Simulated assay, not measured.
Amino acid sequence: MSDVLPAQALGTWVKLSSPTTVEIMAHAGFDFVVVDLEHTLLDLGTAQTMISLARASGLAPLVRVPDHAASTIQRVLDAGAAGVLVPHVDTAEQADALARACRFPPHGTRGAGSTGHAGRWGRLPRADYVRYGNEQVLCIPQLESAQAVREARAIAAVPGVDAVFLGAADLAMDVGRSDVSDLLAAARAAAGDAGVPVGSAAGSPSAASAALDAGDAFVICTNDASMLAAAAADTVAAIRRGSTATS
């Protein structure tokens, strides 16, 4: 992963439809962004613009795809994404299909599309285009169920899986309780046994710092929409308090 993300990489979700968000996150100092196609109405055209702007701004552009469709993964990677996060991966068989969708033959099933962004519109030598796709594009399954935790070691050991991402919120929904720390610890240990890095999400700076201190290779901290909402609410509250104090 070091060729794509630095050690202890810090990123955020991009959910708003304005590509300007990506540039703002670059200036803020994030290492990467994850364009979220699962929980937003963002389309592939907007995602491509965000990917291009992220690369131009020095950010690694990852994309969370909405499903397991190989066609979606291929289009996102053709658009220049540095990798994909794939939701709800519960078995090694699913992980293998996803990893193969990210790789060119003989390692996978991805079709060649070197005339797009990933191939510099046909200007990148074919050998370099194929090498990048097979060696540097990140395939990151999301573990978000009790079954996924049970299968974590097998999923992480699948050739072509570069890291696993722990989806604590959906895991809590799946098992019906809010405290899933034991399950997350088991998944981290299983991935470690397979020699695969772990990523996680954090809702606050303190939680992100704790995850990095605990050894997670990358952390996705909050998102552009929530940061805007919190800043707006804090601004209004501060003005109201100041107005009341001086009246």
Rank of each mutant, 00 (worst) to 15 (best):
R64F: 13
R64H: 08
V65S: 01
D67R: 00
D67C: 13
H68E: 10
H68Q: 09
H68R: 00
A69Q: 13
A69M: 11
A70T: 09
I73P: 05
I73V: 15
R75F: 09
R75T: 12
R75C: 12
R75M: 13
L77C: 11
L77I: 12
D78P: 01
D78E: 07
D78Q: 09
A79R: 09
A79T: 06
V84A: 01
V84G: 02
V84P: 00
V86R: 01
H88W: 08
T91V: 09
T91A: 00
A92Q: 10
Q94F: 01
A95N: 04
A95C: 05
D96R: 15
L98K: 11
L98H: 10
R100L: 02
A101M: 14
C102S: 03
R103I: 09
R103A: 03
F104C: 01
P106C: 10
G108H: 03
T109G: 12
G111D: 06
A112V: 15
G113R: 10
S114W: 10
S114C: 14
G116P: 08
H117P: 01
H117F: 13
G119E: 03
G119S: 02
R120P: 03
R120C: 12
R120F: 05
R120L: 14
G122R: 13
G122H: 08
G122A: 05
G122T: 07
R123H: 12
R123G: 02
L124T: 15
L124H: 01
P125L: 11
P125H: 03
R126Y: 12
R126M: 15
R126K: 11
D128G: 01
D128W: 03
D128S: 14
Y129P: 07
V130R: 00
R131N: 10
Y132I: 04
Y132N: 04
N134S: 10
E135T: 12
Q136R: 11
Q136L: 01
Q136A: 00
L138F: 07
C139D: 00
I140N: 06
P141C: 05
Q142Y: 02
Q142P: 02
A146C: 04
A146S: 15
E151Q: 15
E151C: 00
A152Y: 10
A152C: 10
A152N: 02
A154E: 14
I155D: 01
I155P: 06
A156C: 14
A157P: 10
A157T: 04
A157K: 12
V158N: 08
D162F: 00
D162Q: 07
A163W: 04
V164A: 05
L166N: 06
A169L: 14
D170M: 11
L171M: 04
M173V: 14
M173F: 09
D174V: 03
D174M: 07
V175Q: 08
V175I: 15
G176E: 09
R177N: 08
R177W: 07
S178C: 07
D179I: 09
D179P: 05
S181E: 13
D182C: 09
L183I: 08
L184H: 12
A185T: 14
A185Y: 06
A185G: 09
A187S: 10
A187M: 06
R188C: 13
R188E: 13
A189L: 05
A190D: 13
